[in-house]
């Protein structure tokens, strides 16, 4: 039963990893930008949640209402003021600029919040659980987070394929010049994409901070999990990313079940195995 439990917990954890990945996947899809600072922005959102929670004395899950728009604004500003200048044929500038950003965010957080690990408490809901047959207990909070993750991925899928924003994202991604001719200002479109990405990051960050402890150096690890989920699932496929997150979460929990020291290693190895066997991921998007 421990094994079944490990797998179920892994699936629930996978929802969080899919949230780490979704924002990364979105901006790659729209502007071919890989944001190395993505993980640090997740941690930044967690710290913002912490500040809002302690300042207002509200439940951390409620702080999303404030943190999400703030992160969205940060994303829009970041894109318009910095990242748009790096986009072009050369992959080096966006990579190195977001890498610099990562170092700035990490050390800025260190300066403000110190290196001590923090955690947000969501109250009684954290310990609530429902019993399943076979003596298994399913935590209510992980379950809520998983369902939220699925809903967010579904919503992103809808925005991308059914809404006017998504049409603008896809058109700009296809051909920037012609999209400009359609009256789309690509700087603005990219700003919106980054804003949306960071709204998802805000939710991911708060969930992270409620689920586990976090510190200013936790960002790169989250970036790597998100990245692995994207590659496992296949580039450009959001539901694939969810599957990738789940595979990663389950692998980690199975690894931990064998030996507590193997949790992260097992996840990385699952990623490398899939990269070796199916380099385009499990569910690559069929273009055309």
């Amino acid at each position: 039963m421990d094994w079944v439990n490990a797998i179920i917990q892994g699936i629930l954890l996978g929802g969080l990893y899919a949230l780490f990945a979704a924002g990364l996947s979105l901006i790659f899809g729209v502007m071919r930008l890989v944001n190395i600072a993505h993980g640090d922005l997740i941690v930044l959102a967690a710290f913002l949640g912490l500040t809002v929670t302690t300042a207002l004395g509200i439940n951390p899950l409620l702080s999303i209402v404030i943190v999400a728009p703030v992160m969205g604004l940060i994303g829009y500003a970041l894109q318009r003021l910095v990242l748009n200048r790096t986009l072009g044929d050369d992959i080096l500038p966006p990579l190195l600029v977001t890498f610099g950003l990562s170092v700035i965010i990490q050390n800025g957080l260190l300066e403000i919040y110190s290196a001590d690990p923090q955690k947000m408490s969501a109250g009684a809901i954290e310990t609530a659980s429902v019993g399943l047959p076979g003596g298994l207990n399913l935590g209510i909070l992980p379950l809520i987070m998983f369902v939220t993750a699925v809903v967010i991925i579904g919503a992103l899928q809808w925005v991308f394929y059914r809404s006017a924003w998504g049409r603008a994202f896809r058109a700009t991604s296809d051909n920037q010049d012609i999209a400009q001719l359609m009256g789309l200002n690509k700087s603005h479109v990219f700003g919106l994409a980054m804003a949306l990405s960071l709204v998802v990051v805000a939710v991911a960050g708060i969930f992270l901070g409620v689920r586990t402890s976090f510190d200013p150096a936790a960002g790169p690890g989250r970036l790597i999990f998100g990245f692995e989920a994207v590659i496992i699932g296949g580039l450009g496929n959001l539901w694939g990313t969810l599957a990738g997150g789940i595979i990663l979460g389950v692998s980690q929990n199975i690894g931990a079940q064998i030996n507590p020291g193997w949790q992260l290693l097992a996840g990385h190895i699952a990623f490398l195995v899939i990269l070796a066997v199916r380099p385009r991921g499990l569910f690559p998007r069929i273009d055309g």
């Binding site: 890989v34 190395i36 692995e228």
Partner: peptide, 24 residues
């Protein structure tokens, strides 16, 4: 293994390898 990844994804792939080495 990691030459299967392109551009920026190659970059993060190298990072995963380093993490595997560290954990190993």
């Amino acid at each position: 293994l990691i030459f299967r990844l392109r551009g920026a994804y190659f970059a993060i792939g190298t990072w995963v390898i380093a993490e595997v080495f560290r954990l190993g």
